[in-house]
Design a protein around this nucleic acid. Structure first.
Lengths: 191, 191, 191, 191
DNA sequence: GATGAATGAGGCTTCATTCAT
DNA sequence: CATGAATGAAGCCTCATTCAT
């Protein structure tokens, strides 16, 4: 497990353990052991366990946002852009299920409580992308005339639930299903 | 706070505290204080804190299921039954936000991990009601031809997200919006 | 060691250990062991180790002040009152050497830093008594015309040093010596 | 801060930090940083932190003793010699307040416990000078007929207390006051 | 039945010291 | 010689649980 980058080792170990056992079930000592370092070493990289947890969330989010924004078809029609966003998110999480499960835990914990709305695509960048889509969609009378927050829930709420089920093995999201489900998300918000 | 039913007092205190501060932030001593009993007393009603937490979940679920099943229009058309289910759930949680928040916490914790699928309407009874709707809907070519688990996520995932936003105050679900959103949920799954 | 009063046991154990080994040399675990209780028990009586230390100081000071003020001859001449104060303090500390050593440690530590001047007789009550003596003494041209803080150091600085030497066994302050030394303290400040 | 003499840099950094924050508040890492060296480097000059602390005390004492002994008027009358000693000490500490505060901390700590009597002027050299004064003073019936240790406390105890108050800013010892206070010290011991 | 003082395992964190580079 | 990342013992504190009253 011990690689060259101690900091990454620690974060990976924390990710694994927290996903598996929750924040409580991941004592610093165990994270350290899994990372192949001494407990004290963790404190050379993170001022506290809380900071490690927060940092882990921040970096994951960064990565996700970057992936989703990359090659975002900003010039294409609304529907296409919306489907792109949802599809890429699904793909990202299918590829990185631990990331999904970590984010879920984070938001449903005292840590994430202060984050409220900035969920998932909440980073200003994405938020804007998404809200732009909703705004334009309402303007163009393509989407239902509902508050944007509701449009968000209608589409992304489904996505999150789908991801959870996929990860838990209740369903297997292959490319065909991804296509169908993302379109179903669209159906929920389109006029 | 001290009423005649000590057991209920304890559960209510636990509910309040856990919703407010999470499982970590609800030491047995504090629950006891809030319930107006001594810490030791809790152990006369619940063998352990874990059991109290699990029990609280179980009873809440029971209550929710009972409410939703009551006057369920089993003889009415599919769409109507579906809308009824979602609407009643939304109403229940809007009336009892603590219950919603507790359930959410529970599922996103080591306690709920083993529960996986049986979320929300997961109790056999409801599960069946819901799955019946999906099954018939597919048969009658009213619903999209997708695995039932996916239909579940598409509709109920939205609902959960809506509830969270309502509770956090991002949106206010009045009767008009409830109508529109439940119908949007239907849009997501209908063919 | 275990008596009826757990709180007192803890304070006594802390006093003994801290006097013997300093604040560093008195881990909570050891204090607990010496007091005949579990480590956690200490936290039922004191919110933190720091609080225990501060509280110990506060109570000792209270006791000392009470003893010294009792039967203080407020109607007698200045010199007599001054000698009374110093003599009683010496007697108190000779009888309770641990108290003296604890106070010394306390003042020479981050804990006591904020206390600065309110040393030893610094409690408002005593402070006033002492300062009254100095003030009247200067007025009546009985004492040297120096700032009161200096008169304080000239007399009480000696006293503290004497106490330390007595406790360390370099000298033995019997009644005869107490009389002579308190008078020497007076000589230092009298005109 | 980095000068040519690494060893001195370390001692100076330790002095500053310990005076400011106490022994606890001066981790080796911080001393190293302040000295402009790596933590490990300190161990090339001092076998342990304890040794550094002890050494710092030793060297300060050496310096103080040297200063006080220099131009000591060994041929002048008793009173003059005594006043010289006290005055020079006061001046030294007024000029080097950090040294005073370090010594105070040192003596009131487990480190200094074993040093007992050899306080301040305790180095054999000074000790002798001082004790000579006391001895001769008693012989010549100039000083009170008290144990030498008591004469020491009566005069030097005041001095220490004065220094502390000066450093804490309660009083300002200018030359005039130094003269008066040293004479008051003499009053305390003179017959 | 109820109480709440006591317990002590276990969690987070600090920091003097070592040692490979 | 110097570095500073790594170590891990040891410290403080929390809290679920027990049990004598």
């Amino acid at each position: 497990m011990k690689t060259e980058d101690t900091r990454s080792d620690i974060m990976q170990a924390a990710l694994d353990l927290i996903v598996e056992q929750g924040f409580h079930g991941a004592p610093v000592a165990e994270i350290a052991e899994k990372a192949g370092v001494a407990a004290g070493t963790i404190y050379r990289y993170f001022v506290s366990k809380d900071f490690l947890i927060t940092e882990l969330h921040r970096e994951l989010e960064e990565k996700i946002v970057a992936v989703v924004q990359e090659s975002y078809p900003s010039e294409r029609p609304l529907r296409e852009r919306f489907l792109y966003l949802i599809r890429e998110l699904l793909r990202y999480f299918i590829t990185n299920p631990l990331h999904f499960r970590y984010m879920e835990q984070y938001y449903n914990s005292p840590y994430g409580i202060s984050l409220h709305r900035d969920r998932l695509l909440g980073k200003p960048g994405n938020q804007d992308i998404l809200m732009d889509i909703f705004e334009q969609g309402i303007d163009q009378q393509v989407l239902k005339e509902l508050p944007k927050a509701i449009l968000f829930s209608l589409s992304f709420g489904s996505l999150i639930s789908l991801m959870r089920d996929h990860i838990l093995g209740f369903i297997v999201l292959d490319e065909a299903l991804i296509k169908q489900t993302t379109e179903a998300c669209w159906d929920a918000i389109k006029r």
